[in-house]
Each structure stands twice: as C-alpha cells, then as structure tokens.
C-alpha cells in the first residue's frame, strides 16, 4: 500500500531559530497521527508546513493525489496546492472564527467549499448542507443563523462540517478541542472519532492534550524544541514512554 502522505526531512527556520527540523514520517490511508508537545515545540509550524500554509526551508511532502499519484506539495504550483486545500485536504483551526466566515450563515459556510469546486445548484447545496449539519449534531433550523449566534462547541462542529463536506482524504487539525469545556470536548471527540472511522479519513492532529490523542490517534509523535524525540503506537508511547521528556509529559497529566 502506498502511503497517503510521505514526509521527508522537513525543516523550517525562523531566522536563526528552529521552527521544526529533521521530521520524517509516513501516513497511511485511514490512519490518525497525533503530534504532541509543549507550547513552542514546533507542532503548529510542522502542521502549517504540511498543509501548505508555510513554505518549509527544506524537505519534501509527497501526497498521493487522485489524478497523478505522488506529488511533492512543496514544489507544486500554488493553484494546484490551493485546489488540494479545498478538495482532498481539510484544515480545522483551533479557533473556529479563523476557519469560518462569521458574516455568512451556517449553510453558506458549509456550502462554500461545494461552490468553490463548481456546485451551482442551490437546492443540492442546501440539501448537502442540511445533511452535514445533522451529522455534526447542529439542528437543521439553525442553517440560516450566523456562526456568531452559535456557542463555541457548535462553531467548532460547524467548522468540521464545512471542512468535511467535499469528502477530503486528509484532515489537518490544530488543537481542535482547545478552549472548549470538558463535556463539550468529550462530545466533539466522540463525533470526530465517528467521522474519522466512518469516512476512513486520515488525520494529523496537533494537540497538547494527551487524552485527545489517546482517544483518536493510532500513532503518536512527541516533539520538543523543533525535534521529534519519540514516535510509535499511541498506547505504546503513552504506557511505556522512553524519552525523558515524554515521561515528564505523561506523568504531568492530572489524575482525578
């Protein structure tokens, strides 16, 4: 089986400072990879490099495109990369307002990606938007409300619906549960787990919450100061951490 995403020796520097360096991994279809680490460890830099939001200083990111097989997304042209960004890729931001259009109704937010790839039938767009709102547990009668009238958890679920409507194969998530209270977090995680399994999505989840990766991720990468210090199966890494930093991370989780 060819990996969906092959990352080879990615590095990004901010002047003399290291954003992330020497990162390589393979991601197979249907696999969920968690990236954990403390603030400033280069998790988000890495994610943005992979998703094409930042240009890495070296390395290659090979994505298995539907049309012509493996392509390096770092060197492909910008229109092609942006096209991937609204078809095969999805990006869930930590803050829903970064990923939503706050002045546009929920239906319009979900429909935007459909219209961006050429849907021109209002009835169909609306039906799909309704279907997706239902799948992320937002009542259908809220379809014409603006996201500003939604709670934080609903905004986050709307953002997920908006991203998944075009049936992407790879989802990038940057702290998808950050800033939500624990019960809302739990529902969101449950929803995400269901969607990932149902749609056979591959996902890369950046978080500092070990509970999130324990629930969602098949494999885990631990980052510190821009370097990957440990990677392996999630349960293996969390139950038997080898690197000193990982041990510290695991032991610092509060038990209640």
């Amino acid at each position: 089986m060819t990996p969906l995403l092959q990352v080879r020796d990615i590095a990004k520097f901010y002047g003399g400072r290291v954003g992330c360096t020497n990162v390589s991994f393979d991601l197979y279809p249907g696999e969920v990879l968690g990236i954990v680490g403390e603030s400033g460890s280069g998790k988000s830099t890495l994610l943005n490099c992979l998703a094409g939001h930042l240009a890495p200083d070296q390395g290659e990111v090979l994505f298995d495109t539907r049309a012509d097989g493996q392509r390096d997304t770092v060197t492909m042209s910008e229109p092609e990369r942006r096209m991937l960004g609204r078809t095969d890729w999805a990006f869930v931001h930590q803050h829903a307002r970064d990923g939503l259009r706050m002045g546009v109704s929920a239906g319009g937010n979900v429909g935007e990606r459909l219209m961006a790839v050429g849907a021109r039938n209002y009835g169909n767009i609306r039906t799909q938007a309704l279907d997706w709102l239902e799948r992320v547990e937002i009542a259908g009668d809220r379809i014409d409300d603006r996201p500003s009238a939604f709670s934080g958890g609903m905004q986050q679920r709307l953002q997920i619906a908006r991203n998944l409507v075009t049936g992407p194969r790879l989802v990038f998530m940057d702290e998808p549960t950050g800033g939500l209270d624990v019960s809302v977090q739990a529902r969101l995680l449950d929803l995400l787990r269901g969607l990932v399994r149902d749609m056979g999505l591959s996902a890369i989840i950046v978080t500092h919450d070990l509970a999130v990766v324990r629930l969602l991720a098949d494999r885990l990468m631990v980052m510190k100061s821009g370097h990957v210090v440990e990677q392996g199966l999630t349960d293996q890494v969390l139950d038997d951490p080898q690197h000193g930093y990982t041990q510290l991370l695991v032991s610092s989780v509060l038990q209640v």
């Binding site: 942006r82 609204r86 109704s105 239906g107 935007e112 219209m115 021109r120 209002y122 767009i125």
Partner: peptide, 18 residues
Amino acid sequence: ALEEYGLMHVKLYEDIAR
C-alpha cells in the same frame, strides 16, 4: 488570478437563504 470564484456564489446563496 487563480479564478477562485466560489465565494461570489456564497453571496448569492446567502441572498436566496435569507
């Protein structure tokens, strides 16, 4: 430049929805 005009239809969508 990249002919990404989906957003223009979002405006028309909003019109019909409202």
